[in-house]
Design a protein around this nucleic acid. Structure first.
Lengths: 131, 131, 131, 131
DNA sequence: GTGGTCTAGACCACC
DNA sequence: GTGGTCTAGACCACG
């Protein structure tokens, strides 16, 4: 479990924690019944206030991604991987749909937009595959 | 000039106003030297706090999209259409780049993402072209 | 809106707030689109820390009972009354089911339990209807 | 002596142990002078921390349900069955009184509540008497 | 040791 | 003025 937090980001720290843990659950890095790092331990590791970590865990708990075993810690729920995977997928689908709609609404034609998408793919390929 | 404001959105109201006016300028709905509605008038029309409209106008002014004519009101600047058009393009390019990067970072493969994009195009076509 | 808080109760203060607001919504004391007291105002009224009230509001928001209008305050959501009414009903049904099951499991016969229920009704009637 | 523990429940594990032992004493499953399983043995059987079992035993001891025989273990006290039986009765009476009061406080009318009680009886009968 | 709750006080963006 | 986030530090029950 490696979490990278950007305290200067406009997305709240507790949300960054929630999202990254969800993604870890989604791809199996955190398996069902596996124990999460304790609130105090994680808060030291990423140097944020324990309350902030607790808030993230609390949200995960309310979404049934995680449950607490009193006096022991938090473990990943049984059906969590499926849930997280679906959520990840749905979030991305929604975001793609939103940006395409916005582009159309802004008056761009489909070929223009498709050209932009292709160009952005090239940029990503350049960075990840600089060979 | 028809502005639609969503007060429950997470994007600030003044930003919603700024963006929509920029888009109106970009496609010529608001032409150069055309007068904007007064702060009071617009604030009543879209039922938001006058301060909020004023803040939006102020930002447009600082970006040289509009200028104030003392005692009369705000008018669209000469070169504004070109600027807005470019900005609109850039905003959309950035948003598309961001969402693609996020999808890659979330662990999706390029073919999966391209499939999602294609599906979303189908949805848009269905709505705008229900024939 | 009259909230009564028992700080010495074993049920958390923020939960007491959540429950009482839900009940107020359920019976129409708080109607849709009606504004809730501000965090600071309510925190003074019931003399708890503003964070505690904020936590309660935040939970109501995550359950779509309430939504926040930036810079203005929190208002009751449209479908909230129905939701709250159902929740109230369901909570009570579950509690009644649980207590009956526990009694049966403890080895009591149905007539014994029914006798206890009847006796308790008498006690309630005595208090609310001391005539 | 078959104890079933739910570590995810909101009722403390040691309380679950105490209650179930009391019930076992109440209906004679654990008779006077009968030996309880050792702390280590029981803790292994129900896979909880030995401290937790010890705490439960300690509470039972303080309520004079069991007593310790130096170097041997814990045995059920002489008058324990009567005590446990009464306690069980009282606990259930209190719980029934509480849930009825809560329902009234929530604004339900007595006929509504009685209907719910009747429905729940039907559900229990269905399960225990599926013929 | 664990999480859960609460307080106090700070800073921020938004209206 | 509003809510939202974060920090710091306290106390509690539980294992």
């Amino acid at each position: 479990m490696l979490l990278t937090i950007d305290p200067s980001s406009d997305v709240p720290i507790y949300t960054q924690i929630v999202t990254q843990i969800k993604f870890a659950v989604a791809d199996g890095t955190l398996a069902a019944d596996q124990m999460l790092p304790s609130v105090r331990q994680l808060s030291k590791q990423i140097t944020v206030n324990p309350n902030t970590v607790a808030r993230a865990y609390s949200q995960l708990q309310s979404e049934s991604i995680v449950r607490s075993l009193r006096g022991q810690g938090m473990v990943v729920c049984a059906g969590a991987q499926k849930t997280c995977h679906q959520q990840r997928q749905q979030i991305l689908v929604d975001q793609i749909a939103a940006v395409l709609k916005r582009a159309v609404q802004a008056g761009l034609e489909r070929p223009e937009i498709e050209k932009i998408v292709a160009e952005q793919w090239d940029q990503i390929d350049d960075r990840t595959d600089p060979a």
